[in-house]
Design a protein around this nucleic acid. Structure first.
Length: 878
RNA sequence: GGGCAAUUAGCUCAGUUGGUUCAGAGCACUUGGUUUACACCCAAGGGGUCAGGGGUUCGAAUCCCUUAUUGCCCA
């Protein structure tokens, strides 16, 4: 059998993914085993795989595959999110290309287009996840607008309404004039923008006096309904009780007094526009001011804007400034930076707007969710822990959640109006039930279905995804079904910190409200993927590599390793393709180690050599030590450290040391016992590596021998932890010091590896001799002689042991040797000085614990011994 | 403006309760090497005043104060 010297992932990965699917290893049904459950953070149904998804889902797959190997019933539920604003915007844009305007369509027609779009492009991302190796239970694929999901959402809305937690309010909301919908506070991004502060002069009615106000938004003067001054401001006492005249429209408005006005800012006079600013709205409510809304829903001016009617707010701002200047109203303009809210999705500048919206009261609902994460006996752990502070800050200041959106793509709010009054509605799961309620509420038995009109708005997408961990198991509609009881609470949630509040916090809220239990035990918050220059990866910068191309180039295993090697929990990951190259290189290394082993000819008559025996027992200890470290890293969600431990184990301990130790001479056969042991070791290495590099490991596993579907690596049994011999690891580390010493001498003295050397040593350490054969083999040392006296030749020290390799006279550079020894001596003496200073300090000796003092004394005697050997070496050279 | 976090080698990061030879890892770098698994490799090596300053302590990368810089969240 010839095995190619380069590992070709593209030949392998599709084959094993198909095999895993065929044998249904990813599918889970409740059974007697312990469940291990993850629900995927559902990506946008029309989305495409980007680096963030790759990182996220690689982590989830590692956790799931590991759980599977540990014998748990692993269930990873995949799915997608309908992403109301983003998707609706895409559909609207596509229709526009075809010359169709949304306003020409009925709701039903529009939804048909949207579902067609979803069926055509939706779920591409899930196909891409398969390329990455994601072992999701695809039979469970869910979508937040599946009929069962939507039914759950409506049920929850009705329930919360009936509990008095959902209410309708005329409120200032964040209006996105581009998407023509409201946004929740969390969907608004505050950005610093440079603008102007305009100083405008208002006339005082019945007087020649004027007053000056400062505003950043001169176009909103049409909505002014008062001027406000601070009652304590002596500059304006003369204005009290007077009225001002709004420029251009010449409306007369009252001058009111309120301590809210900041004496320092601007001129100390504030224009009040209740329809277009939250603070002004509060002032307006307090002083019973008129509310004049001057904008259309696309933020162009309406008829209140007079000759600016129909023009966009930013156009008007420029034009009106000019007009005001010409009319002498604009006194001056200052450059001014302020924060403006922009839409997360459309980037449009948010317009505060008053409208009727649906809200969910959060304060009481948040309480159990706060306790779960921050209490003493925390139910839910965040990794890394630092996010608990952020979580606390948000949850303790939580505001009511605006859950209505002026969109069609989403669950339509189940409120049915029977009249024109604000309160003329009932809330029910369907129109038939609504009719019953409406009849009861109105006392009008003659009402019919046609008299009811359902609210036009849809629910916020997060109002469906906050139920995700329950609704994917139908836990809302059938709260006691077998699946929800088995899989819920889920174990780990892996997601980005950017949706800690949007999603994570709300799932916790929903979990306690509807299952009286947490939705998950642990939340692993990944970092953002950035480029090498720390810039966020984005389409507009074009710095995001094509995920599928990366997989093509480096293999899914290579990309997975590349991502995880640089992704400590919670830290941003600075993505660099070189990392994938390292992952690919690692795959190739393991492949070649396997090639080496597979190439050996086995001879069952051969005795096991001593070197192999010792090497194997050392590696077994080393493997156990690494296994314990890996467990520890996993328990702290330090996946990159766990991977690095495995990387070093396989790269250094297995390939560089063990295989070199057991390797038979060229074209010589290997004894069966050693061969079998090496194969077992290789298999164990594959098992612990499988969660990180599933394809490569399965390929080698199946190459090692014929396996039945029941024997596939993906469902094999993870190596169990055993106690191990710490001493042998220490002794081996000492031996590697000797090996390195000899190698250094070979290099310095230009002694080829092919020429055997002889080694002499003064064994002050009285070390075990069992590694001598190993040292000999690895360094091509013909014989090791234990002596009492120095021997001529190149020398080196490991602790207080002194080693000599005789070399021909012309190779000895006495000067260089002395220089080297002097440097070593100086370092040792400095070290000794430090220790002795410490030990002669009476306060140290009397205060430090006994253990520490003993250690210091040991260090002292070791160093003294070492200095002795260096000094005597120097003496012989001179 | 308020809050949180960070600052350790050229880069990305570990460093647990203050105490093992604690100043580490990976990558990068330098030098040498066709040792029959692998040049996607092997071996050896250089490199840090632990951001600056002050303090507590027998002892500080680790605890406290302070300054600077950076990032995130909120208003």
């Amino acid at each position: 059998m010839t095995i190619p010297s380069k590992y070709d992932a593209s030949q392998v990965e599709d084959k094993w993914y198909a095999y895993w699917i065929k044998h249904n290893y990813f599918h889970s049904t409740p059974d007697e085993r312990e469940p291990y459950t993850i629900v995927i953070p559902p990506p946008n149904v029309t989305g495409v795989l980007h680096m963030g998804h790759m990182l996220n889902n690689t982590i989830q797959d590692v956790l799931i595959r590991r759980a599977r190997l540990l014998g748990k019933n692993a269930c990873w539920v995949p799915g997608t999110d309908h992403a109301s604003i983003a998707t609706e915007a895409k559909v609207v844009a596509k229709l526009k290309e075809q010359g169709i305007s949304k306003s020409d369509l009925t709701r039903e027609e529009f939804l048909q287009h949207a579902f067609d779009w979803k069926d055509e492009y939706g779920g591409i991302i899930l196909e891409q996840l398969k390329k990455l190796g994601a072992s999701c239970d695809w039979e469970r694929t869910a979508f937040t607008m599946d009929p069962e999901m939507s039914e759950s959402v409506i049920k929850v809305f009705v329930d919360l309404y009936n509990k008095g937690l959902i209410y309708r309010g005329y409120r200032m909301v964040n209006w996105d004039p581009e998407a023509k919908t409201t946004l929740s506070d969390e969907e608004v991004i505050h950005e610093e923008r440079q603008g102007n502060l305009y100083y405008l002069e208002y006339k005082i009615e019945g007087s020649t006096d004027t007053l000056t106000i400062a505003t950043t938004r001169p176009e909103t003067i049409f909505g002014d309904t008062a001027i406000c001054i601070n009652p304590n401001d002596e500059r304006f006492t003369h204005l009290k009780g007077k009225k001002a005249i709004v420029p251009l429209c010449n409306r007369v408005i009252p001058i009111i007094e309120d301590e809210y006005v900041d004496l320092e800012f601007g001129t100390g006079c504030l224009k009040v526009t209740p329809a277009h600013d939250e603070n002004d709205k509060n002032l307006g409510d307090k002083h019973n001011l008129e509310v004049i809304d001057i904008f259309n829903e696309d933020a162009s001016l309406n008829s209140f804007g007079m000759h600016y009617q129909g023009k966009d707010r930013f156009v008007v701002r420029k034009e009106i400034a000019k007009e005001l200047e010409e009319k002498g109203v604009l006194v001056k303009t200052e450059v001014h930076t302020n924060k403006v809210g922009t839409s997360e999705r459309t980037k449009a500048v948010i317009e505060p707007r008053l409208s009727d919206q649906w809200f969910l009261k959060m304060e009481e609902l948040a309480k159990p969710a706060i306790k779960a994460v921050l209490g003493d006996d925390t139910d839910i752990n965040l990794y890394p822990k630092k996010f608990e502070n952020t979580y606390r800050h948000w949850m303790e200041n939580v505001r009511d959640w605006n859950i209505s959106r002026q969109l069609w793509w989403g669950q339509q709010i189940p409120a049915f109006f029977y009249g024109d009054g604000k309160e003329d509605f009932v809330v029910a799961e369907n129109i038939e039930e609504a009719l019953v309620l409406a009849k009861k509420k109105t006392g009008n038995a003659s009402l019919s279905v046609s008299d009811l009109k359902q609210d036009e708005d849809a629910l916020d997408t997060w109002f469906s995804s906050w139920l995700w961990p329950m609704s994917v198991f139908d836990g809302i509609r059938n709260p006691e079904n077998e699946e929800i009881n088995y899989y819920y609470p889920t174990n780990d949630l892996v997601t980005g910190p950017d949706i800690l509040f949007f999603w994570v916090a709300r799932m916790i809220v929903a979990g306690y409200e509807y299952k009286d239990a947490k939705p998950f035990n642990n939340v692993y918050l990944t970092g953002l993927v950035r480029d090498k220059q720390r810039r966020k990866m984005s389409k507009s910068l074009g710095n995001s590599p094509d995920a599928l191309n990366l997989i093509k180039e480096f293999g899914a295993d290579g990309v997975r390793v590349g991502l995880l090697l640089s992704a400590p929990a919670g830290n941003d990951i600075l993505f660099d393709e070189d990392l994938c190259q390292q992952g690919k290189g690692f795959a190739n290394k393991i492949w070649n180690a396997f090639r080496l082993i597979k190439g050996w000819e086995i001879n069952d008559n051969l005795e096991q050599p001593e070197t192999a025996k010792i090497g194997l027992s050392w590696y077994e200890a080393k493997f156990q030590k690494a296994l314990a470290e890996i467990e520890d890293h996993f328990s702290k969600y330090r996946l990159s450290d766990a991977l690095m431990t495995i990387y070093k184990l396989i790269m250094d301990d297995f390939s560089s040391w063990l295989l070199e130790i057991v390797k038979p001479a060229y074209q010589q056969p290997i004894d069966e016992k050693t061969y079998d042991a090496v194969i077992t070791i290789l298999e164990n290495n594959l098992k612990i590596l499988h969660p990180f590099m599933p394809f490569l490991t399965e390929e080698i596993w199946q190459y090692i021998s014929e396996r039945t579907p029941e024997e596939a690596l993906i469902i094999s049994k993870y190596p169990s932890q055993k106690t191990f011999d710490e001493e042998i690891i220490k002794d081996f580390d000492f031996a590697t010091g000797v090996v390195s010493g000899i190698r250094t001498i070979r290099k310095e003295k230009n002694i080829s590896f092919k020429d055997a050397v002889e080694l002499f040593l003064i064994d002050a350490e009285k070390k075990s001799k069992k590694f001598d054969v190993v040292i000999q083999k690895l360094t091509n040392t013909a014989v090791i002689n234990y002596v009492e006296e120095k021997v001529d030749g190149a020398s080196f020290r490991v602790k207080s042991n002194e080693y000599f390799v005789p070399i021909s006279i012309e190779n000895i550079d006495v000067e260089a040797e002395i220089k080297k020894l002097n440097a070593e001596l100086k370092r040792a003496e400095g070290f000794l000085f430090g220790i002795q200073k410490k030990l002669s300090n009476e306060r140290f000796v009397s205060n430090a614990p006994e253990k520490v003092i003993t250690l210091e004394r040991k260090k002292e005697s070791d160093t003294i011994a070492k200095i002795e050997t260096i000094k005597s070496s120097l003496a012989t050279l001179k």
